[in-house]
């Protein structure tokens, strides 16, 4: 009973380390990425402080300064995503192949018993390729996704590869607002 779920946790730890290792080789250790990352973090923190200090003021000069910094940060963020993108594609292909291999190995096998009834739009995933109507039966893919969700992010954080809060907050805010040229 313990074998399959623990094997899936092990697989997901291995793939998380493999993914991070590959990303380190292709992206994190490159000088360009490191420079951009430091720059984005510095700018994000600066922008956050500036917004806190002058957020509500109607001073045009401050507003212009903030807008200019936002624009610079947006460009750097875009460059950072571009640097990451190439390796993400390579890793994406490798992982799709790996995943389909594991999918074939565990095809039609109930790997765990869920202690709850999943809601209908998750049942397609949690009961994928499984026989019978017992929706508490869990397929490989569902457990693997859950493991990856928790393990990968924690490993990224432990190794210090996760983006800083300031950067992701500013990045999120920037991506949420439409670019100026399309307004």
């Amino acid at each position: 009973m313990w074998g399959d779920p623990l094997l899936i946790v092990f697989i997901s730890v291995c793939t998380a380390f493999l993914g991070e290792g590959l990303t380190w080789i292709l992206v994190y250790r490159t000088e360009k990425y490191q420079k951009l990352k430091v720059e984005v973090e510095r700018q994000s923190k600066k922008l956050e402080k500036r917004k806190e200090a002058h957020g509500d003021s109607l001073d045009k000069q401050h507003k212009k300064k903030i807008e200019r910094e936002e624009e610079r940060l947006k460009n750097n963020n875009r460059d950072l995503s571009l640097v990451k993108m190439k390796s993400m594609f390579a890793i994406g292909f490798a992982f799709t192949a790996l995943l389909s291999m594991f999918n074939n190995i565990f095809d039609g096998r109930v790997v765990a018993k869920l202690p709850f009834h999943p809601i209908s739009w998750i049942q397609g995933l949690s009961h994928r390729n499984l026989p019978g109507d017992d929706f508490t039966d869990c397929s490989f893919i569902f457990l693997y996704i859950l493991c990856t969700m928790s393990i990968r992010q924690n490993i990224q954080k432990l190794l210090g590869f996760a983006p800083s809060r300031a950067a992701s907050q500013q990045g999120g805010a920037l991506f949420a607002t439409p670019p100026a040229q399309f307004k």
Binding site: W2, V9, A112, K113, C138, L146, C147, S150
Partner: peptide, 25 residues
């Protein structure tokens, strides 16, 4: 929260399967 929730679901499911899932698996 989401990471913690995923970790919770994984440990809950594994423990439940290992200790109480024998009859149904």
């Amino acid at each position: 929260f989401m990471t913690s929730f995923a970790g919770f679901l994984v440990t809950w499911t594994i423990m439940y399967t290992g200790l109480h899932g024998n009859s149904s698996l």
